[in-house]
Design a protein around this nucleic acid. Sequence first.
DNA 1: ACCTGAACACCGTTCAAGT
DNA 2: ACCTGAACACCGTTCAAGT
Lengths: 218, 218
Amino acid sequence: MEKQRKAPRGTRKRDVPLSEDGIYATALQLIDADGVEALTMRKLATALDANPMSLYHHVPNKEALLHGVATRVGSQFREGKQEDIPWQDRMRQLALDFRALAHRHPKLMEYSFARADYVQPEDPFWQGLTDTLAAAELPASEIPRVAASLCAVFTGLLLSELTGALQRWTTLPPAPADTDGEGTPPPAEDVVDAMFSFALDAVVAGLESHIARTRKEP
Amino acid sequence: MEKQRKAPRGTRKRDVPLSEDGIYATALQLIDADGVEALTMRKLATALDANPMSLYHHVPNKEALLHGVATRVGSQFREGKQEDIPWQDRMRQLALDFRALAHRHPKLMEYSFARADYVQPEDPFWQGLTDTLAAAELPASEIPRVAASLCAVFTGLLLSELTGALQRWTTLPPAPADTDGEGTPPPAEDVVDAMFSFALDAVVAGLESHIARTRKEP
DNA sequence: ACCTGAACACCGTTCAAGT
DNA sequence: ACCTGAACACCGTTCAAGT
């Protein structure tokens, strides 16, 4: 009767059966557009031109849906440069590559960072991080803890950037209100870039100092 | 500090008119008990023995309610030790004091850290942080950016601890799956404490190196 | 096997009406 | 001024019924 593969007219988005991948993909689109808190099972269904209840045949519930979107995006991470560079440079590059991913899906990543359920052991990011620490000749027994600490630090920096807190804090007055002529400093983006460079340099310096310390007293 | 006038009979919690402070206080109690996502205007009202709509005479909406709870708790921060200690020690102590506050209201702080709207310029934490950086003889022009970066880093560490990500990451396999006899390492708490010490040492070392660098080339 | 309509048990919030 | 009942416009999810 109403076979209608490929709607000859009309603008329906779906002439293909629902699939897990399709659901996750358009969920990500909606999140990119309006943020996680605006995503609704019902809105997602209409975007897929489906009945809201049909989604539950492919995804157990909303929480699992969001988790799935988050881990899929997290696994998209790719390292930009080769690995035959000093570990300090690779560490910096790793963080900047992750920042680039965060900039590609800021609304989702803000949610992901808060849950901190995005890094999976098989993700290239975790692999790159542990590889780099091994290249730095950090004792193998310390690698998991140090890698986890670094994840936490990167999470904090990126989350603070995405929420705007980093920029806001930067414009808070120092201890004594030093009200001179200058109002707000240069545009926020350059400042944030500079803060990342500073923070990454400090992280690398801190790591170097830690490695030197542990080498003295094994 | 829940003095609560003591109802003469009956078990109603409220024999006193609604007040902003009372609303925030019991909201915090409910959050501590069941988490932010379980807090509902309607549940809060019944906990206050009030009609849900009465709340809107004291608080504009739910978002403002949560923001109010978050900033009130953030402003409760107090420094433990005196300020006449080396800046390195004070910096570490500052972070540990903040961690203690986070442990007092973990459910709320998890929410707060994700929004990153808890640090206010007049908060003792921000004051202590900028004071400490000044004591480290960091150039005044750099203090806001460095303080903001440190806030972001502490946020990441504490948030990752509260969500459990820090513990989870620590048990992820390093690069090559090194499956020996050992299952899970010692209890998680000690490990997290140790990770905080490590991270704080690294942060201090990174700061020292940054200060030394900027002193060379002014 | 996959989809769906109706319904349930909730939400936050508006608004006109009470005292 | 402060409070409230009823109502509105949503939610996520269950379930029995359709194809």
